[in-house]
Structures are given as C-alpha cells and as structure tokens.
Amino acid sequence: MLDIRGISKRFGTRTVLSDVSFTVRPGEVFGFVGSNGAGKTTTMRIVLGVLAADSGEVRWKDAPIDADVRRRIGYMPEERGLYPKMKVEDHLQYLARLHGLGPGEARSSTRHWTERLGIASRLGDEVQKLSLGNQQRVQLAAALVHDPEVLVLDEPFSGLDPTAVEVMSKVLRDKADGGIPTVFSSHQLDLVERLCDRIGIIADGRMVAVGTVEELRDRDHGVVLVVEGPPAGWADALPGVQVVAAAGTRTTVRLLGADDQQVLAAALAAGPVHEFRRHRPPLTEVYRDVVSAAAPERAR
C-alpha cells in the first residue's frame, strides 16, 4: 500500500501543499484530480523524491520510502521528457538499466512494451522523429519498462488520440488488476470516473475529498430522486424532502430524512408515475460541488 501521510510543502512564502494524506491500495487505480496549480504535480514529485517535503512522509509497505523503492516506481512526469536524439530502443533500454534491470531483461522488456503500446516498428528511430502521440507512448513505455511495483503517472492521457487513450486505459487497468497500486492525475473527469476505483480531490494544496465516486456523490449530494408523472407541486409539503427542481411533470427531490419509498408513495398518491430513478450526477458535477464547498473553508 502506498501511503502518503501529512505532506506539506512551501516554496518561499507560498504554501503549496498542506497536510496532504491519501492511500493507494494494491490493485487499485486512484484518480488524482484538482485544478491547475492545486498541488498534484508537487505531490507526485515528492512521492518520487524529486522534491523533498517540508514535513510528512511517504510510506510503502509500512516503511518509509527510500531510493531503492523509488527505483521500482514507474513514473511519468507532467513535463514529458526524453533525449530527442536517442533512438527509441536505446532510450528505453537505458532507462531500464538505470532502474536496475540487466542487459538481457532490459532488451526483452523494451520489446514487450513497445509491442504492447504499438510502437515496435519505431524502435530504431530517434525519439524526435516520432509524432507527439507516439512520443507519449514511448513516455509511458519508459514508465513501465522496468516492471514497476507502483505506478505514478502525471497526466498520462493528455495529448493522446482516442485509440491511444483506450490502449493506455487498458494497460493501467491490467497493471492494477495485477496488484499494482496505480495513481494518475487527469483533467478528463469522465475518464477518471470510468477508470478509477477511488479518487482524491485536491484544491489549493489540501485534500478536500477522498473516496469512491459513489461515496463522494452521496457525501455531498445526498440521495436525489427524479420523478416523472404527477404534475408539479405534489412534493412541496412532503416532510424530510427538499425539492431541487420542478418543471411540468418532472420533479427532482433530495432526501433529507425521508426514504425513497415514502416519496414514491406520495407521488403515486398524486397521479401515475412513469419514471422513478436515482439521479447520479457525473463526476464533473460532484467535483465542482466539492471544490466550491471547500472554498469558504479555505477562505477563513
């Protein structure tokens, strides 16, 4: 289990991270979301030891993380970077060797991942000759080539075409299913929602929410029901219920103490019910609400 405990970081007088904590369990894909400048990249850099935290610690398998463990992390930095003039094969083998693989393992692993990611035909080309999308695939191969025990990927999906997004999602899922804790950051919330087991939302250097998408939804929205059928007005006086929206024959209510059966009974009493369902707001909406709910707290 990758355990980030109470990390704080200041750059000069500016606090970038304050008391950030979350855990990523084996076999879990953890989505790390937040606006630009919220602290995602800084957190990941601290996990990799590229930056030092002012306080707090990063633990792996119940021990503080050290250089040897870090070498077994697969990392994709936000600032993509490879030697432009190095050949793809030489480059990946070099990185594999730096991560401690022997020459033979480095060669076979390079073959394996370039095939898996669809760039095997470009092994002999200089990195700079590849399209941006393909360079991105090489970058992912660079994170995977040493068979890492943990994956930390900063914006792995940015700049990818839909096919590459599919390939990459599949790779991440497979890696996680193989028991590897995987954490990635992204602004593509639909993708995060689809791919992640749990998500963490960071705003202004603080973790404002951590949990499954379901948990976050319930925490901030409560249960919201959509009822289609009886004309508006039937729910206005119902106890334990807040009417969120009512237009024509569609009424949206939030449960504040009442249970869904009471609501259904009240609706049926008012007229025929054609649709009765739970409203599940997309992650985008949940994210927006979580972040704005945290704002006054931060302003204090």
Binding site: R45, L48, G49, V50, R70, Y75, P77, G81, L82, L98
Partner: peptide
C-alpha cells in the same frame, strides 16, 4: 528536454 526529471526519479 525535461528528461532530467525522469532520470532524477531513478538516480541521484
């Protein structure tokens, strides 16, 4: 080329 961050995540 920013490759330095990738390298420094591995070696000192």
């Amino acid at each position: 080329s920013r490759v330095v961050e990738l390298l420094l995540a591995t070696i000192k």
